[in-house]
Design a protein around this nucleic acid. Sequence first.
DNA 1: GATGAATGAGCCTTCATTCAT
DNA 2: CATGAATGAAGGCTCATTCAT
Lengths: 208, 208, 208, 208
Amino acid sequence: MGLQERRLREKEQRREQILDAGRELILKHGIYDVSVQQIAKLAELSVGTIYLYFDSKEEIFATLQEGILEVLYDEAEKAVAEVTDPSDKIRAIAEVYKRFSEENKKYFDVINYFISPLDVFFPKLLKTQVDQHGNRILSILVEVINEGIVSGLFEKVVPKRCSIIIWATLHGLIQFRKMRDTVLKEENFDELYRYSVDTFIEGLMKKG
Amino acid sequence: MGLQERRLREKEQRREQILDAGRELILKHGIYDVSVQQIAKLAELSVGTIYLYFDSKEEIFATLQEGILEVLYDEAEKAVAEVTDPSDKIRAIAEVYKRFSEENKKYFDVINYFISPLDVFFPKLLKTQVDQHGNRILSILVEVINEGIVSGLFEKVVPKRCSIIIWATLHGLIQFRKMRDTVLKEENFDELYRYSVDTFIEGLMKKG
Amino acid sequence: MGLQERRLREKEQRREQILDAGRELILKHGIYDVSVQQIAKLAELSVGTIYLYFDSKEEIFATLQEGILEVLYDEAEKAVAEVTDPSDKIRAIAEVYKRFSEENKKYFDVINYFISPLDVFFPKLLKTQVDQHGNRILSILVEVINEGIVSGLFEKVVPKRCSIIIWATLHGLIQFRKMRDTVLKEENFDELYRYSVDTFIEGLMKKG
Amino acid sequence: MGLQERRLREKEQRREQILDAGRELILKHGIYDVSVQQIAKLAELSVGTIYLYFDSKEEIFATLQEGILEVLYDEAEKAVAEVTDPSDKIRAIAEVYKRFSEENKKYFDVINYFISPLDVFFPKLLKTQVDQHGNRILSILVEVINEGIVSGLFEKVVPKRCSIIIWATLHGLIQFRKMRDTVLKEENFDELYRYSVDTFIEGLMKKG
DNA sequence: GATGAATGAGCCTTCATTCAT
DNA sequence: CATGAATGAAGGCTCATTCAT
């Protein structure tokens, strides 16, 4: 048992080594400029070993993304816990999402990498895995909105539907941020972003 | 005279040949798996000839995207012209955007290709060109919202700001559509999309 | 006649245009980075026309080199005419050669280009043409040394032989100049060069 | 243990395979017409493998040149050891250089390849490496001249300076050898070369 | 399990030369 | 004579993946 256990632990360790290296390299060079050879080198493992733990380079990236979403999820949860008003909770989540996209610009590209030309790129399974993690993040929003409804603060909307919409808006805006020098030239992005969230919340608020 | 004219026409024809091939290949394999050699082969031209008409592969893609956005712009304008109510105009634009993204699934990826890791990828000029086309589409929305305000139908919002937000929402939703089998499993995307637009319009409407 | 004459003149003009462009481009980019297309563009001629006046790119370069050697020859002659003492004349020639190699670094590479892997590169004819021009430069040296002998200043050496040797020395030194940062690190090249010439002259001087 | 050793040997073998192929191709086509693909084919290795052993094509050539200079160095040392008189030693070195240039005509071009438009062509490091080998050869000459001075045979010249000059002369002459059918038409090159060396030695000899 | 050498198709781009007009 | 569009082989180099050890 002790032996088997150690084996397992070591195996997990190797995976972590690989993922760490992948993360670091993505952060340094961007996802499109990371090769398996580079990962192997940084992880102080042989190329062949990489393929013992992952079936393909894509799988490494996908796993990495899970982790990234995990962090995002955790931060969102923490942020939500710090305030009590449902409106503020939404604001907090939005803030976390934006800050995350700024601080982890390169990581965020990983998310995009998997969302974008997804249909072509990935085996079904991989895609599903990744999406499941997205679900968790969504669920935080859902819960918050639900809370708002229950407490009589928000209108009786369909929580999931609204959550998806707000999330899509935020994601879309963050994506558009890349056009800040052209299309968004005269806009203050932070203001725009905040305004968008506030408007949305206002729409949720009970009228009258 | 006739000769020079014919020359020009032929030249334009070649460009079109190349673009057609590029389009077809993107449709078939996705933008990340299209090479200049493939384009040349399909266009029944030599590789060298490609570079007689375009300075780089990226330029081909950028030109392609301009065309796509052009079409999108035209369709949006047409759709807007067909209805009179500003709210309906917004709905029409949203519809065009969605329908376009469905009918041209792979083309839509071209747009994303240029939005995504843009900072790193493309020469400034190319990016600017592409974004300028994005601007035109935005301007339709701006005008419509403006119209709504002037006619006393909408609240006195900032048109550009709102346009960006609605566009970002639509774009984000369409992107999320790729998760229809997982995150959006129980959702009817079309309904969700429509609901999102309606909610937005409602937010714009003059209260009281 | 007038017509034929004009034709000839125009023809010569075109050649000159091409050579001018070639020269300018070599000076700007170095001989290894000049393409026929570039020459055509700068000469405001079509690529095809280039091949009407020259059989190949090499031929352009060879012709150019003739011209370069011509200039070198002229400068050497002028320098020689300005002093009377044969020793000084040799010094003057050496100076011209060095200065020329510095001021026309890129041109000088043209000379090297044709001297270096010559056997492989060029059709016999081209090589001969180029070499003939080399001969003229040599002849200046020969004459000077001869003069020195006749005037009783120099020993009765074989003029041509000595000329070749001094020329080879100068050429070799100039070539080695490229190693100024490594092999010649602690050497002052100008001094070294001058010393070499002086030593050689001293060897020529009548003893006793 | 035996395994690791064998691995190392095999690795060295591969490098040698590549260098052998490179050498052979340079000999056959001249250095300017050797491509990595050709080397790979002749070495019966894949292109990728070439890059496993060398970082670039230039590095292959540089390594080749190091080897060539090594051989030259060894032969020069051997030749020097066989005679005792410093004058004869210089003659011996000159002879080695000439013979080498004849027997390895194409190899010699490799040397020129690295001397010639070096400034532009090569990464600093490569150049430095190559030049360092040049230094070793120079040092043999320096030592011999020094010996001559110490033994009272030669004048008190600056050894390094003189060594550079003689080397430059020899190198220049060998280069001019390529014009043997034109500029040097009536000259017996071997005689000329020998004469040049003798004259130089004479200049070194103590007068009176 | 782990290794890492080997693969080789593929990438984008250049350019001397030709030839139909 | 002059044009310039067209060619297409060739260039150096990368990299995901495999497989014998």
